[in-house]
Nucleic acid binder design. Structure first.
Lengths: 328, 328
DNA sequence: CTGTTAGCGCCTTCAT
DNA sequence: ATGAAGGCGCTAACAG
C-alpha cells in the first residue's frame, strides 16, 4: 500500500506539499500539483482514512443506528436522513444494534467513530447514549426521552396520534375499542396509549382492561394478540393497533376465523407502512411524517455540530390519519 | 476526551501497562488490572477507534454496500450477511452508493476503511472495485462479473431463473410472452433475458421485439412499460417481469385499464419480495435464495481474509418458482 | 510556494 | 509484570 510518503518521494517533493496538493489546498503551484497527482495515480495511492480521521479528529460521517438493518424500518425516514446528510457533504453509514452493548452500533458510539448519530433502536441503552454524547458528538434519539445537553430528541406527536386514531373510531360510532399495544418499555407505545386513554375519557367512555392486549410491535405478536381477543369470545367493535405490523397480523387472525373487516370489526393501525395499502382490506392508519423526521434529525445534528445557538433539544412533528377501508 | 495516557497517569502505571490491561492481554497482575479499569471507568475512557485501527491496520468490520439504503432491498440478504458477520465477531456497516464515485461507499472502498466489502450497487463502477480490491481487502460482488484475484462473485443462477419463469408460462399454455426488462446495463437483467430467450427458442417460439419493453426495475417503470404495452392494443398472453417491483407496477396499470390478472393476462415476477404475496392477485414469481446469498458472501470474505486456499472466485446459487395466483 | 517537524492515540517490541 | 520508546499515515503549524 502506497503512502503519502511514497507519493512525495516519487513526485520529488516534501510530504506536506504532497498533502496540500492532494487535498486541493490553494497553496501549491499548478506544476507541483500535477506532478503529485500523477505520482499518486501511478502508485494507485489512496489516503488512509483512519490516519486522516485521527489527525483531524473528525470523520465527516454520521451514523444512523437501527435495531435491525433487515427489518421493515422506515425507508422514508432513511431517505430523509440520507438526502440531508449528502446535501451537507457528509457521509452516512447505517449500523445495526443487534447485540446491544456489544453491537457495532454501541461500538461506534462509544469509540466515537462518527461525528454524530441518529438512533432508532430500543436495545441501545440510555446509558450508552448518555455517556457517549458530548460536545462535538451530538446524538439525536428518535425513540425515547432523554435529558442531556448534547442529546436531541425529535419525535412525532404520538400522544396526539393515538388520540386521533381513537377519536376517529369513536366518531365512526364505535364505543368498545380495543388496544393492541407494543412492548411496555416502548416510549412510542406509551404515548399512543396515553392518547387512546385521553380520547376515551374525553368522550366519556370507560376504559376496559380486558380489551388491552400486548402484541410486541411484531406481525406475529399482533396475530397472537388478536387470537387471544377472539378466544375471549367477546370482541370489541373496533381495535386500535399500536402499529401497522401488528394490525396486519391481526388481519390474518380475523381472516382465519372468518371474521370480516370492517363488517364485523373495524381496525386502525399506526405508521402507514408501505404494506398497509396493499393488505386486504387496505388499512386505515395514522401516518407519521417519516421523511421529515429523518431530515430534521440530521439537520439538528449539523446545527449542533456547528454550535448554533438556535438548536432546541426537543422537536415534535405531527401525524395525520389516512383513511382506507378497514374501518366502518 | 480522556486518552489512554490519562488513564495510565491516574492509575499510576505506564501507558503500555494500561493498554495491556484494557485489552485483556494476559500479562498484567490482577491488582494492576483492577486499578487501570477503575481509572478508565472514572474518566469515562473509551479507546479512540481510529488510532486503534490505524495502529493495527485492521478494522474488524465489513461493509455492505447498497445502491440505496432506503430502497426495498432484500432484507433476507441483509439478514444473512448480518448473522454470519456477527457470528465471526466482526462488525457490519451498511453504506449507500448514491453519488457514485463521490459516495460514502466509494470512499470506504478506496480508503479501505473496512476489512472487506460486499457490493450490491450498480452505480459503483468496476474500476473502483478493481482498484480497491487487494490482498487483505477482499470484495465480493453480487451484481456483476469481474475478474480479479481478490474480487469474488456470488450470484444466483439468473439465466436458469429466467428460463424457468418463461418455461413455466409456456407450460401453462402461453405462446405469446412479453418481457419487461430492467436497465440495460444490469447484469442480472441480462441473464434473466438470456434465460427467457433460450426458453423461447427451446420451445420453438419466435421472439417478438414488440413484446420487450424496458421498465428500469422500478415500480413506476413497470407501470409505464405496461401502459405502453396496453397502448399498443395488442397484448401478449403472458408477461415475464424481470423483477417483482415492476410486476407490481404492472398490476396497477392493468387494474386501471380493467384488464384482469390472470383471467385476461398472466404475469410472473422475479425476486419474491415481501409484497409479492400481499398484492392482488398474489404474484407468482421466482424466488432467489437471498439469505443464502448474503451468508455465503460474508463467508467468502472471511475465507479470503484467512487466506484459505479453498476459496473460489465464483459461486452460483439456484432459484425456485413460487406459484401464486397471477398465472392462469 | 515548499520543506521540516511535531504530534493525533494507540499498540507492541525490547529491555528491565 | 512493568516501563520506555518507536511508529502506524496523515495534517498543519511554522520556518524559510
Amino acid at each position: 500500500m502506497a503512502t503519502i510518503k511514497d507519493v512525495a518521494k516519487l513526485a520529488g517533493v516534501a510530504v506536506s506539499t504532497a498533502s496540500y496538493a492532494l487535498n486541493n489546498v490553494n497553496k501549491v503551484s499548478p506544476a507541483t500539483m500535477k506532478k503529485v497527482q500523477e505520482a499518486a495515480r501511478e502508485l494507485n495511492y489512496f489516503k488512509n482514512g483512519f490516519a486522516s480521521d485521527l489527525k483531524r479528529t473528525k470523520t465527516n460521517t454520521i451514523a444512523l443506528i437501527l435495531r435491525d438493518l433487515s427489518g421493515p424500518f422506515y425507508s422514508e425516514l432513511i431517505k430523509g436522513v440520507q438526502e440531508v446528510t449528502t446535501a451537507n457533504g457528509y457521509d452516512l453509514i447505517a449500523c445495526s444494534s443487534v447485540g446491544g452493548a456489544q453491537s457495532t452500533a454501541a461500538k461506534f458510539l462509544k469509540e466515537k467513530r462518527v461525528d454524530g448519530a441518529i438512533i432508532l433502536a430500543h436495545n441501545i441503552t440510555n446509558d450508552i447514549v448518555l455517556e457517549s454524547a458530548r460536545e462535538g458528538f451530538p446524538i439525536v434519539v428518535l425513540d425515547r426521552k432523554l435529558d442531556h445537553e448534547f442529546v436531541y430528541q425529535v419525535e412525532v406527536d404520538n400522544i396526539h396520534g393515538g388520540y386521533a386514531a381513537t377519536e376517529y373510531l369513536i366518531n365512526k360510532g364505535h364505543r368498545e375499542i380495543g388496544y393492541v399495544s407494543g412492548p411496555m418499555n416502548s416510549h412510542d407505545n406509551e404515548m399512543r396509549f396515553d392518547g387512546y386513554m385521553s380520547a376515551l375519557k374525553d368522550h366519556g367512555i370507560q376504559y376496559q382492561n380486558k380489551w388491552k392486549v400486548s402484541g410486541d410491535f411484531t406481525r406475529e405478536g399482533g396475530y397472537r394478540a388478536t387470537k387471544m381477543l377472539i378466544a375471549q369470545r367477546q370482541l370489541p367493535e373496533a381495535i386500535f393497533y399500536a402499529n401497522d405490523e401488528m394490525a396486519i397480523g391481526g388481519l390474518q387472525a380475523f381472516k382465519e376465523n372468518k371474521i370480516s373487516v370492517p363488517e364485523d370489526i373495524s381496525i386502525i393501525g399506526y405508521d402507514d407502512i408501505q404494506l398497509a395499502e396493499y393488505v386486504s382490506p387496505p388499512l386505515t392508519t395514522v401516518r407519521q411524517p417519516k421523511y421529515e423526521v429523518g431530515a430534521l434529525a440530521v439537520h439538528v445534528v449539523f446545527q449542533a455540530l456547528a454550535k448554533e445557538d438556535s438548536v432546541e433539544n426537543y422537536y415534535n412533528l405531527s401525524t395525520e390519519i389516512v383513511e382506507r377501508k378497514s374501518v366502518k
